[in-house]
Nucleic acid binder design. Structure first.
Lengths: 262, 262
DNA sequence: CTCGCTAACTCGTCTATACGAGTAAGCGTG
DNA sequence: CACGCTTACTCGTATAGACGAGTTAGCGAG
């Protein structure tokens, strides 16, 4: 169809050491960065680029695959290759677990979603007792079995986060925490009602590429990393009362913390 | 050479809908996960896999490229494809800017490196005055020009982090902060000496795939995301006195924070 | 023994071709 | 007009071959 309107892309440099497919990727990247192609806009088709640069299709595909790995573009079978739109991000503020939110009967996710003006949703709920992994056991202080609460969070229909909470059985068994819906304020509110007044949380943050399973549950596009957050909740007696393991789509989040300078 | 000792990898399922190169990637991934190939170990060569599975080379390369995108393996020209070793991580504790560290004359990076038992190094130092970007200007409270301090941090010879600090000129100009080496305790110690007693820091954390420039300066392997951290330092008068923009190799870091439950 | 070259093996780049499958627009039939 | 089919265009998968370039081990000359 469109013979690739001239001017958008330049020529190759045959004298360059740089591989042809990298040169093509460079040109496309620069064009995107300069706004010549806007978010969501369709890039020239493989066939267009084959004609324009006079290279084989595999070379063009290699170029696209670089940009895909960088998270800049995504291909849609039968439609074309598009500049990946940057989805609105959810900001996780450091006061998201403040007691005042729990006392208003809101869970942390709902608090955040409301603030962002989005439509929150929770699915894939699973609550069951299971054997603690080595890591979880260590974090909770040598417990063998735990109550695991798994759930997936969606914002405006898009899965953005998958989380599992682990609690020692002696705390959680037979309480509302072991119910699919623990009630207003979430499990932290229940923990406090059970006498475990919360003192502080430790959070560990990593970033990495997702496993295939994570790509599936979070419907991640190519070139989107995940943020892996492990939070441990401590009560005022210094006991670890919960560990929450969360995997978030990195393109959907900005985490925000406040540190004292003392 | 090695005809791929039988048993390590299975056969393809011709009846499966799953693409052949994905099946091969699945098998290799599973073998790695199960420890059949250990960290740093060489995987079967492309030629081995071509023979073993009876497919073309491009199909095998496609499989490898998936695993590379997942950060599981890395290829070395002329040597082979290897299971990517997980480098030791630097843990950034939430007390890393505590005044007691500054008072001991140590900068945050050195404090951390010492704790990890590694050999810290700083290079690519650049200190100059420049025009503030829109974002930096906003964060610093509408300043036009800033002092920018750029530096790269290495641990045991490996670049792990690239950081730029921006300070308002009225604070930094003509002080030790504008020198390449600001002296013991780093610029935060100098800021306090200049009467800007630090109150708290705001940190914003994102994760994404690196730009080509970032791949180069951090010598990143394929499939390694970066953690992008933007820290704003506030003095006791509520003024933003510094913004530090940091890009970290995600496979080299675990960030750690402590949140109050109140 | 040491040094340098060679040969074999490795991944990197590129071409050419083929067929499959998802999408979308247009045309023709009812 | 409404529906369904055809068709053209898109990316996905796969084959076969070629040459280049980095690495390594071993062989042979000195």
């Amino acid at each position: 169809m469109s013979p690739l309107s001239s001017g958008l892309l330049g020529d190759l440099d045959p004298t360059s050491d740089r591989a042809v497919f990298r040169q093509i990727a460079d040109q496309l990247r620069e064009a995107i960065d300069r706004g010549r192609f806007r978010e969501g806009e369709k890039l020239p088709s493989e066939a267009d680029l084959v004609d324009h640069f006079g290279v084989s299709r595999m070379t063009v595909r290699n170029a696209f695959s670089i940009l895909q790995g960088e998270g800049l573009v995504h291909a849609e079978h039968g439609r074309g290759v598009f500049v990946r739109p940057r989805p609105p991000v959810r900001r996780l503020a450091s006061d998201r677990f403040a007691r005042r939110h729990r006392e208003q009967g809101k869970s942390a996710f709902i608090v955040e979603a409301d603030a962002a003006g989005g439509h929150p949703q929770v699915d894939s709920l699973e609550v069951k007792e299971e054997k603690a992994s080595q890591d979880i056991s260590t974090r909770l202080g040598s417990v063998r079995r735990v109550l695991a609460r798994r759930r997936r969070y969606l914002l405006d229909g898009r899965p953005v986060e998958f989380a599992t909470s682990y609690l020692p059985l002696d705390i959680a068994r037979g309480t509302p925490i072991a119910e699919p819906n623990p009630g207003p304020g979430g499990i932290y509110a229940r923990l406090e009602e059970l006498g475990h007044r919360l003192d502080h949380f430790d959070e560990e943050i990593r970033a990495r590429m997702p496993s295939p399973a994570e790509v599936k549950t979070l419907r991640l596009a190519a070139g989107v990393p995940v943020i892996h957050l492990i939070r441990t909740a401590f009560d005022t007696e210094g006991r670890a009362v919960e560990v929450c393991d969360t995997v978030m789509a990195a393109d959907a989040y900005v985490l925000s913390y406040q540190l004292p300078a003392t």
